[in-house]
Write a protein that binds this DNA or RNA. Structure first.
Lengths: 304, 304
DNA sequence: GTGAAAGCGCTAACAA
DNA sequence: TTGTTAGCGCTTTCAC
């Protein structure tokens, strides 16, 4: 089973490779006799031809590859590892439907290497949860014109399009369900500090009432310090399930940011913060891809 | 910021493209003057050169791309979606360390398209949870010589290397903890029926004591039908957390197959079934990759 | 309507 | 030690 090329097809069908290419790609402006088209198509079929996308990329200058790059440190706890699983699934599914192939790459939180973008000539990239201070080096070594959608990261750089969830709205909703109660908050950590800070600011309570999740032991302690009868507003459903081990689920409101609202404990309340974050990110990417350049679009998009 | 090629470097350093290539790739058998090497290297640096892997792939006939293809149906429940998240993370991390890039693709459970393997000329592929009946068509349209590691799927085809977890051992352990008790079992579904069947056979209890997870409602019902005081042995930690909503966690033993043992409810027992499944799969792949052909290795590998 | 030929960026014989 | 050159498989002018 050796590799079949258009040359083989050309020979088989007694045409030139150009003609084969025209036909296989349905080139719009090329008129082809039904007869030759048919001959070529059946030849291709018979020979079991599969195009070589690397070769195609080389000449078309489009690879059809989209990257999903996620910031990750070594030894992350399970709730952190799983955090973007849903988003990756969704994006991958949507992109695949659209005919793109997805390159998945974790990048080290400490020293993010994004060489893959240039090396693989990715057509577009999702960058997830990136430290603020790394954006400079990223944008510096960056092939201009590659659509770059930054997720869950705040950064002052007009090069990037950013998608974040509407934590303010989610917060309002959650709070509206708990009026008149003492509340404590648990939020999820991001490598992007400004984002964490923005969420903190939006919440605007004292440090004693807010915990940025780090590990289960600290969480336990934090919760145990809260006055009896307090209500908890927890960001992220994985963290929520942990909190539910130490607080009455009925006292909790979980803000779902990982796309798994079904997993929150039965008696806890939940508000979904990302209804369609993947969808939005995807659509933004498609827009950028098709415009093939700058877009007169808000650089910040808040989901839902 | 236009794209720099070895030709640019060659010009800049007053050498031929061949020389540049030699130097940039540290070609073993080529001796190069320190002086030219230095000139070329600095030129490359100055110009901010990034190799084009597509071009390289074309001539080397190796793409450096490894595929992770996961069988997925539309609208899977959350516990199913997350099931391979950890494995994907792990594999990706290991492969990235080794200098490979990872292409992630979900394939439809109903009509799996694996064209990506041939089109992208993937150097190796992990195929996860594939229906038995699809293997024929897969192996038929398959570029010979591509290492193919099949995970969580039983199939009688010597073309593939298979990795499954050692459910028998896990089972023994779990059972040894519950001797003298009435036990019921909940196992996770796989698209690969023979695998499900094999697990069922290993358990060997009546249908009334075994449930293949489908949805939460049925799970509830199943559990409620069990005699009071029964112990439950649940495969998969996500399913385990669901079960814990309807049974006393203390009565449960969770067989962790998704790499997140930390998430099982505090009072439940747990046995890890996959200690190092990703690691094993990865190493197998590396072996195959380096042998560049057949390997006198067991086609079935049971993890742990 | 079809084909010849020039590349895309890179590697690897083979010469020099 | 370095350069020349022939491709890898494909697309795309531009002639015919």
């Amino acid at each position: 089973m050796k590799k079949v090329t258009i040359k083989d097809i050309a020979k088989e069908a007694n045409v030139s490779t150009a003609t084969v290419s025209y036909i296989l790609n349905n080139v719009p402006k090329q008129t082809i006799t039904d007869e030759t088209r048919c001959r070529v198509l059946t030849a291709a079929e018979r020979l079991n031809y599969v195009p070589n996308l690397a070769a195609r990329s080389l000449v078309k200058r489009k690879t059809g590859l989209i990257g999903i790059l996620i910031n990750r440190a070594a030894n992350e706890p399970w709730w952190r590892q799983l955090r973007y699983a849903d988003m990756v699934n969704q994006l991958e599914q949507l992109l695949t439907e659209r005919g793109y192939h997805v390159v998945l790459s974790s990048i080290e939180a400490e020293k993010p290497k994004v060489g893959i973008i240039a090396e693989r000539k990715l057509d577009g990239v999702f960058l997830i949860d990136v430290k603020e201070e790394h954006f400079y080096s990223i944008s510096f070594h960056f092939p201009a014109g590659v659509p770059l959608v930054v997720v869950d990261s705040l950064v002052e750089d007009s090069l990037f399009y950013k998608v974040i969830h509407d934590y303010e709205l989610a917060l309002q909703t959650a709070q509206s369900w708990n009026v008149g109660h003492a509340c404590y908050y648990v939020i999820e950590p991001y490598y992007n500090e400004p984002y964490v800070q923005a969420i903190k600011d939006a919440i605007g309570v004292e440090d004693s009432q807010l915990y940025v999740m780090e590990d289960e032991a600290q969480l336990t302690e934090f919760i145990s310090r809260q006055p009896a009868g307090s209500k908890g507003i927890i960001f992220n459903e994985f963290i929520g399930t942990l909190a539910a081990k130490y607080a009455d689920p009925a006292d909790l409101t979980i803000v779902c940011t990982s796309g798994c609202p079904e997993m929150v404990p039965a008696r806890a309340k939940r508000v979904s913060a990302i209804e369609n974050k993947s969808q939005i990110s995807f659509e933004l990417m498609i827009q950028l891809l098709k415009l093939d350049g700058e877009l007169p679009i808000d650089k910040y998009i808040k989901v839902k």
